[in-house]
Amino acid sequence: MPGLGERRRGRSCPRSRIVLTWAVSLACAAASVVVGAMAGGRAYVVTSVIVVLCAIAPFFVIFESRRPQARELVMLAVMAALAVAARAAFIWLPGFKPMAAIIMIAGLAFGPSSGFLVGSLAALTSNFIFGQGPWTPWQMLAFGLCGLVFGALARRGIVTGENPGVAARLGLAAGGGIFVVLVAGPVLDTSSLFFMISSITPESVVAVYLAGFPMNCMQGAATFVTLLLVAKPLLDKLTRMQRKYGMLD
């Protein structure tokens, strides 16, 4: 299934502009690395945040420059809010966080760049509610990646959203779980590495990621269960929306 949101947009951003945006952001990141290295001390902590922001910003800049339509804005907001609020649906399972799963579903439905936006906006919003911290940029990146990667997979037809068999559903759910354990979770843990650990040595790196591992496994399990249970119905609902209102088309 092609990304629902990718077919027509308010206005598409010219390719040259996309390349330029990424080039500028890459240059910024490189410059901050150089300055950080020269400054020494703990400047690398600031550098790391700048690099993360440079990875997020181009998605935002490109989105902004193509003047998206009302429906696209609403769909992003709805999916991001659902990702944050979905926790309320699983209130009887303490610690169960379905956020990553919903973002992946959004990615499957709307494609990579919208998926990234949903993920990073959801992370930002949830931090507005539960408190901002130095981890905010990393969370935006980690959850953005969930949407981005699953959007890209859907586009290349690796994961099909429509009429998946049991194997495909299990595959999707397992893929989501593994992604959280191996990619999204560790990205989040990286913020602790920079802000809480003085000396970045092989031991401290291993310790930080190992400390985060049980939590990431829980998150991964929640993602697996959520994807298994709701991926199909939610994607069906999004497709129905498109049919009934031409909403995403």
């Binding site: 009302a70 429906r71 804005l73 609403v74 769909m75 709805v78 809010a81 659902l82 609020a85 979905a86 649906a89 699983f90 209130i91 009887w92 399972l93 169960f96 379905p98 269960v225 959520t226 249970l229 709701v230 119905p233 939610l234 609902k237 999004l238 929306m241 209102y245 909403m247």
Partner: peptide, 23 residues
């Protein structure tokens, strides 16, 4: 988990209906 999924499903349906109105 299954009850949660039903709830989430119902919530999504409602949210998407509302999205059309908001747009």
């Amino acid at each position: 988990a299954r009850d949660g999924a039903s709830l989430l499903s119902a919530l999504t349906t409602w949210a998407l209906e509302g999205a059309v109105t908001t747009a």
